[in-house]
Design a protein around this nucleic acid. Sequence first.
DNA 1: GATTGATCATAT
DNA 2: ATATGATCAATC
Length: 225
Amino acid sequence: MNSHIDPPSSVALLLDRAEQLAGWSLRELADSLSIATPNDLRRDKGWIGQLLELALGASAGSKPEQDFPELGVELKTIPINHQAKPLETTFVSVAPLIGISGLRWQDSNVRNKLSCVLWIPIIGDRASPPGDRIIGQPLLWRPSAEQEQLLRQDWEEIMELISLGQVQSISARHGQVLQLRPKAANSKALTEAIGEQGQPIMTLPRGFYLKIPFTAALLAKHFML
DNA sequence: GATTGATCATAT
DNA sequence: ATATGATCAATC
C-alpha cells in the first residue's frame, strides 16, 4: 500500500524534492512509503535505487531510457563513506557487442545516460545496515567538456576493441574513467559477440561502469571537498 | 584501494 | 535473454 508519486514537472521541482530528502535515513524514507527495509543488500542490491526512484516519482519499470524522459534526467544513487568517497563503481549501461559498426559516441547509450545525472549520495559504509544509511545532498550533474572527452575516449577505445573481436581481452583497466566488466545474472549467462576472426562467439554480457576516482572527483568538485 | 568476476531481484 | 536497479567478495 505505498503511495504513488507523480513525476516532477520540471528539473527544478525534481531537485527540490531531492533536496528535501537529504538528511533522512533510508529507513525513515522506506517507512514513509510503507516499504520494508532489508537488513542487508545481499539479496536486495537494487533496493536503494528503487526506493529513491519511487520517492522522486521516476517512471517505474525497466525501460531502456532515462528515469525522467521528459526532463532528460537520469537518476543514480551512489554509496559513499563519511569522507564522501564512493564505495562502488557506478553501473552505466550494458555494452552492445554486435551490430556496432558505425556506432558513434554521440548516439551511444553511455553518452545518453550520462548527459544529465541526478546523483543522490547515500552515506554509510559496507557494514551499516541499509536502513541506517543517510541520504545526502543531491547533485545535478552534466559532464564538463573535459569529463566528456575522457568518457568519449574510453568509450571509443573499448568499442573499437569489441568491434575487432577483442572483447575477451578487455580488462577493467582499459579506460581511464570508464571500465568494461561482466553484467549478468551469473557466470553462465551468455550473449553473442564478435570473435577474433570476426566470427560470432558467445560470451558473458558486459556493462560499462564509472570508476571510483572519476565519481569521487565529480562529487568532490561539486561539494568543494 | 583498485580490480575483477560473480551475483541478486524484478520486469519484459 | 535483455533491460532495469546495483553490490558482493575474493584477489591483486
